[in-house]
Amino acid sequence: HNGKLCKLKGIAPLQLGKCNITGWLLGNPECDSLLPARSWSYIVETPNSENGACYPGDLIDYEELREQLSSVSSLERFEIFPKESSWPNHTFNGVTVSCSHRGKSSFYRNLLWLTKKGDSYPKLTNSYVNNKGKEVLVLWGVHHPSSSDEQQSLYSNGNAYVSVASSNYNRRFTPEIAARPKVRDQHGRMNYYWTLLEPGDTIIFEATGNLIAPWYAFALSRGFESGIITSNASMHECNTKCQTPQGAINSNLPFQNIHPVTIGECPKYVRSTKLRMVTGLRNIPSIQYRGLFGAIAGFIEGGWTGMIDGWYGYHHQNEQGSGYAADQKSTQNAINGITNKVNSVIEKMNTQFTAVGKEFNNLEKRMENLNKKVDDGFLDIWTYNAELLVLLENERTLDFHDLNVKNLYEKVKSQLKNNAKEIGNGCFEFYHKCDNECMESVRNGTYDYPKYSEESKLNREKIDGVKLESMGVYQILAIYSTVASSLVLLVSLGAISFWMCSNGSLQCRICI
């Protein structure tokens, strides 16, 4: 991952900044910058967002509201009850120091605090018919004063009620008058409520006091790749198909172990950190130390980045220098085999997901714990399936590479015959000098055995068991695999060879 928040398929997220979902939807004055928000790819909250409900109280069923919003990608904020005409018999300019803005008392931008007009609070009834052709999110509140005197001074009615009804919602609220500790300079409380109004449905408000009335509502448009994440990451000019709280993932790998919460087309989250597919040879310690064997393909974004291909070729060293050249036929066979294998694994496992966190309130801790156990169970199954699949494929890959290298080895052996000696570690020792032209003939299969047989015969008789390297004779190393990324691999195959001279070296080696 890149540690950044990015656009998702070209669409920017909605960053709530210092506000949370509650503050944004109710219209906390400190969240005025969010009022123009219309569309987004996903919503970003920060872990310690401080601006929620400015007048103390709870947004009821907040967790369910977050779940609903996680599939919303755009909205239209509109005046559901026009301020100047909807409440002619009531005062609608209630403000509070708890919702101060720029040093002055204020109130929510989407709600109206209705109080008595003169000395009376006549029963009010108002309704709205949803003609938007889509779901409408309606929010309101109920004020709970701290004393009967406060109730009387604001609403005149000691036994007030609030009723809200639609086809799918029907509740009646009565204020709970009680002494409470002071929070944000208030002994009173406000509880906030919401409902989704279906197209064509009607919502009716009736009250004799204590109503925090809707002013603006939201017509919602769903987008199934949307979601809500909690993150401290910063926004950058970048684009992605998959976003996590820790950063964007741009990967076609089937798995990731970065974060379980994802938005967009994302690899499946697994616990494993070692889900690797081999593309090189079986481990040979001396070669492995030099980083030549054991190439791997990573299938977990965050564990290993991208696929690494092994390729086969020849390396030689003689009086004229040293050089490398790919054996294109065996390399292409290996590439085709690995590509098919990788595609097979991805096809089997690479279903892209959006995974969002589930919200539970403080009273639902047991449910949250149960949900976590269920999620953990599914996660263990996914991890096991992934590891088992790759384990089985790896064994076949190792066998496949062994065969490829063996074929190259036999190709060289059949040409050199007794003009060189096998020394048991995949290397041959020449009994004759071999210049670049000679080396090329070994690589392309045109090695002239009779041409060098007499010199080889004489050297075999002279050496008589002495280690060949100390006599200045020449080696050919018969097994060799270097490691390159897919891009470098293609470039390498396009070149005939490249040279690395070893000044004054008397050794001649050709490596497979």
Rank of each mutant, 00 (worst) to 15 (best):
Q243L: 03
T244A: 11
P245R: 02
Q246S: 13
N252K: 11
P254E: 05
I258G: 01
P260N: 00
T262M: 02
G264A: 03
E265S: 13
K268Q: 09
S272A: 14
M277A: 05
G280P: 04
L281I: 04
R282S: 08
I284Q: 09
I284V: 02
P285T: 00
P285C: 02
I287A: 05
I287H: 11
Q288H: 15
Y289E: 02
Y289N: 10
G294H: 14
I296T: 03
E301R: 04
G302L: 01
M307E: 01
G310V: 02
G310Y: 11
H315R: 12
H316A: 01
H316G: 00
G323M: 13
Y324K: 09
Y324R: 01
Y324F: 15
Q328F: 05
S330W: 00
Q332N: 08
N336F: 09
N336E: 06
I338D: 09
N343D: 08
N343K: 09
S344K: 03
E347G: 10
K348L: 11
V356A: 15
V356G: 12
N362T: 13
N369W: 07
D375S: 07
G377K: 02
F378C: 08
W382C: 10
Y384T: 06
N385H: 10
A386T: 10
L391F: 04
L392N: 08
L398N: 14
F400S: 10
Y409V: 06
E410I: 07
V412E: 08
K417D: 12
N418D: 13
A420K: 05
A420V: 14
K421M: 15
K421Y: 11
I423V: 15
G424K: 12
C427T: 06
C427E: 03
E429N: 14
C434A: 08
C438K: 07
C438T: 09
E440V: 07
S441Y: 03
R443T: 05
P450T: 08
S453Q: 12
S453G: 11
E454T: 09
S456G: 15
K457G: 14
N459W: 03
V466N: 04
L468T: 15
M471V: 14
I479D: 09
Y480V: 15
T482Y: 00
A484I: 11
S486I: 05
L490N: 09
S497P: 03
S497M: 14
F498T: 08
M500T: 09
S502H: 10
N503A: 01
G504Q: 15
S505I: 10
L506F: 05
L506K: 09
Q507S: 12
R509A: 13
